[in-house]
């Protein structure tokens, strides 16, 4: 059991680290798409690690099954949510930072001409 506890704590700490980094990224990143990227880190890897860590804490009963279900649904829904978010933004005409730079450049070039 001791070994399991250690592995579980490592997983949980790693999960918290990724969750935190996702949150920091959400604040610090410059534009919408990079932010979605940061947010989806929390949804995906952080959630995977935390749930795996919790799985090792259970005594393999009903709770384990429930956690596996949650894991399964998170794996389906959160990438979908990130995808839908990014796609709607594209659809609504939002440009990524790189694209904005090039379009800015071309605009300024046009002005110069």
């Amino acid at each position: 059991m001791f070994v399991l506890d250690i592995i579980s704590s490592v997983l949980l700490v790693a999960g918290v680290f990724f969750g935190l980094s996702g949150a920091i990224g959400l604040f610090k990143f410059p534009d919408f798409f990079t932010r979605v990227h940061a947010a989806s880190v929390t949804d995906s890897i952080a959630a995977i690690l935390i749930i795996s860590g919790l799985l090792l804490q259970t005594s393999f009963d009903l709770n384990t099954a429930k956690l596996i279900f949650i894991f399964f649904f998170l794996m389906i829904t959160s990438p979908t949510a990130s995808h839908a978010l990014a796609k709607s933004a594209r659809h609504g005409g939002l440009l990524s930072m790189a694209e904005r730079k090039t379009s800015d450049n071309s605009n300024t070039q046009e002005n110069q001409h």
Binding site: F73, I76, T77, T80, H83, A84, K87, S88, H91
Partner: peptide, 13 residues
């Protein structure tokens, strides 16, 4: 209509 992924996942869920 545009969101193919969303439609599939919704049907699944």
């Amino acid at each position: 209509k545009e969101h193919q992924v969303l439609r599939v996942v919704a049907k699944l869920l």
